[in-house]
């Protein structure tokens, strides 16, 4: 039954319950915390990243091996991204951007394994990550620039009589950042996984229709293969997009004047 249901893959199941905060002790009341399949894949994601990066760089070789080179390339890729978007000052946020990029990327890659859960297919996770970025930008922006941070909403060189129109637009676009950032990642991963499931589900449905159905199921099979490739691309690109946009938002916090 769950074999062809495209939504089933997003269901979160408790692996073991932890505790409940508040409530009157009855079933369903209060805020319930548990170790779920989502938690498992978050742990797997962090474990994969940390183990890979820490184990491959243990040798600290001047001439790197393949695995160490992979770690170094990841480092330089993200470092280059931060440096080019947010400048040298932005390097203090390098660990944050690096963690975000690798977390989303590896979570997406885990999600490509059949029967595995995709952490980033839940809006609450992507929203939490984008709120982390948003709040970092606001807190650091005000901490570093004080009230001058508000210049972000008043673009320089704009005539005074246009400002009443431009400033609200800037404020709205600023406030919608966490939404667009989280929905972009969530939507891409969710839609991609549903599409993949629907198309591959056709293979099962059609091949149960006899000989012609088995022949015909080659079409969704080809589609499924192509979509799998596409999903790997989407998973990587969305992690990159999230990281790049984070860098650009951080750049606003560091240099608020346009």
């Amino acid at each position: 039954m769950a074999g062809t249901d495209p939504i089933h893959q997003f269901v979160i199941e408790d692996m073991f319950p932890l505790f409940t905060v508040g409530g009157d002790g009855t079933e369903g009341s209060g805020v319930h915390f548990a170790f779920t399949n989502s938690s498992l894949f978050m742990v797997l994601t962090v474990a994969a990243i940390s183990l890979f990066l820490i184990l491959t760089t243990g040798g600290k070789k001047v001439i790197p091996g393949r695995m160490q080179l992979l770690s170094e390339l990841t480092y330089e890729f993200v470092a280059g991204m931060v440096r080019s978007s947010a400048g040298k000052e932005g390097m203090k946020f390098f660990p944050l951007v690096f963690s975000l990029f690798t977390f989303i990327f590896v979570a997406n890659m885990w999600g490509m394994v059949p029967y595995f859960f995709t952490v980033t297919s839940h809006i609450i996770v992507t929203f939490a990550l984008s709120m982390l970025v948003f709040l970092t930008v606001i807190v650091y922006g005000f901490y570093k620039n004080g009230p001058k941070f508000m210049k972000l909403f008043v673009p320089a060189g704009v005539p005074g009589y246009i400002l009443p129109i431009v400033t609200p637009i800037e404020i709205i676009s600023f406030l919608s950042r966490p939404i667009s950032l989280s929905v972009r990642l969530f939507g891409n991963i969710l839609a991609g996984h549903i599409t993949l499931k629907v198309f591959t589900g056709f293979i099962v449905t059609m091949s149960s229709l006899g000989f012609l159905g088995i022949l015909g199921s080659a079409l969704p099979l080809i589609m499924g293969v192509a979509l799998t490739g596409l999903e790997f691309l989407v998973g990587a690109v969305q992690a990159y997009v999230f990281a790049v946009l984070t860098c650009m938002y951080l750049n606003d916090a560091i240099h608020p004047s346009h």
Binding site: H32, F35, S39, M42, V46, S99, H122, I124, A128
Partner: peptide, 16 residues
Amino acid sequence: TFPSQLLWLAITFGVL
């Protein structure tokens, strides 16, 4: 499912 996800996201991302 939100509390558990947020809790574990905070733990795992914090550790990361």
